[in-house]
Simulated scan of single mutants.
Amino acid sequence: MAQTLLKVDNINVFYGNIHAVKDVSFEVNEGEIVTLIGANGAGKSTTLKTISGLLHPKTGDVLYKGKSIKGVRAHKIVEAGLAQVPEGRHVFLHMTVEENLDMGAYTQPASTIAPNKEKVFELFPRLKERRKQLAGTMSGGEQQMLAMGRALMSNASMLMLDEPSMGLSPLLVQEIFDIIQNIHKEGMTILLVEQNAQMALSVADRAYVLETGRVVMDGTGAELLTNERVRSAYLGG
């Protein structure tokens, strides 16, 4: 039986008076890809930011490896092995690819940096070719690869990806999803928030559907891909 790595337990999150996330509960087991799908404003990114420690739930709890991380500062959560690739990539535009990767390793002992960087370069050969290039001169797809590589430099055991395909051409979306599956095959547990429900469900072991801040449905990726309600709402079926 796979161990539960992340457990989100009945969290409620507010922006001022706006109740953005309502009694949301779900779990991610070790070695899974779990996806959260839903329309814009459904509460997906807010949920990830709460797990990452960038927002705090008013009630409820977030457990990572069996310990509460509610109220723990964001950099300590990264140190514990939970890294987020933010929506919009947020790479350091005026720094080189290599400098961006080094920034991802700021919680790690110096001895791990070189071997981790080699692993990132194996996964993303294009980053190796461009290691001296300024991140701001790269395409959106390359910046997405860099944001993922930077998160992997933290020696994470679980990766949270917020809208990795946003703004990318269909060809690049396919490439990014191939990379997500490769990272997963290497043993990484992944929590994926993604607007492209078709792609997300096709790679996910399990999925949760969020609507206006609540979980309204869950199941395996395959089940939700064929679910009539999901098809009409999110898959253009």
Rank of each mutant, 00 (worst) to 15 (best):
H184Y: 09
A207M: 03
G213K: 08
F177E: 05
L235Q: 01
Q181P: 08
L235R: 01
G167T: 11
D218G: 15
E175W: 11
N227S: 07
V216T: 15
I180W: 13
N227W: 06
M166P: 11
I183W: 07
T189M: 07
L168A: 08
V193R: 08
E223D: 15
V215W: 06
A204F: 06
V203S: 02
M166K: 09
T189D: 09
T226I: 10
L191H: 10
E211S: 09
V209D: 03
E186P: 10
M166D: 12
Q181D: 12
V209A: 03
S169C: 09
Q195E: 01
S169Y: 02
E186C: 04
Q198P: 00
Q181I: 04
N182W: 05
V193W: 13
N196W: 02
H184K: 09
A204I: 01
E228L: 08
V173D: 12
A233R: 07
G219I: 05
R206W: 12
T220H: 09
Q174Y: 11
M217H: 08
A233W: 07
L168N: 13
I176E: 13
Y234I: 01
G213Y: 10
L235Y: 04
A233H: 11
V215I: 13
G213F: 07
K185R: 14
T212Y: 12
V203R: 05
S202Y: 06
S169Q: 15
